[in-house]
Amino acid sequence: MDRFDLTGKIALVTGGGRGLGRGMALALAEAGADVVVVSRHQAELDETVRQLHAHKGQPLAVPADLSIPDAPREILTTVHEELGPVDILVHAAGLQVRKPALELTVDEWDKVQSVHLRAAFGLTQAVARDLIDRGTAGSLILVSSLTSNIGVRNTSAYSAAKSGIEGLMRTLALEWAPHGIRVNAVTPGFFHTELTDAMFQDPERREWMLGRIPLGRAGDADDLAGATIFLASDASAYVTGQAIPVDGGWLAG
């Protein structure tokens, strides 16, 4: 019996054009899902779709800017028309404005909140409404961050947004449990992506970071695959309202 099988499921992955989002999209495809990736950048979408074609599912790319309030609804409409209704959501889209709080502008703050948090609300609400209408169970996965648990300087807007993601996740898990919709988060530790490149380039920050990861290395996209497929599939049938760290042991203390 394969508890981790996603054959026949449609998964929507925001931020699927690169980094962790692309890795998660490929993982879901590996488990058999038809995967829809969302990004602002067509070239990145094209590359992800090219890689998704290595798996048996049907890939779809939807270019969209999640800082626009209507984007979630429009994305869902497109997916519905071109592929079908969504069973699994992974909200991995995000951006980082790495500067001291004293220098952060309100516009920067709002932009970070809109892509992480408002989009999370819009996307989960749109997918859940559809699942409830169809009477179908589903799994919603939000990408959290170590910054929901620890202080990391120069990430005030990002940390606030990611902490908000976990609060949203728990509330939605409670509200939608009666409909068989599970809502969880994955909490990646330090992975080398475009968002964290600045930290990896700074020898002092890099040393601080790697020295505090018990497994002694940064994560790579493959490390997230297991937890992603677990949360998306019936493997986690009795798991809801949880954030699962994939962090090499950082949060163990």
């Binding site: 297991g226 994939v246 962090d247 042991g249 949060l251 203390g253």
Partner: peptide, 8 residues
Amino acid sequence: AGSFITGH
């Protein structure tokens, strides 16, 4: 699948 999960 659990390669980077420890202490959880």
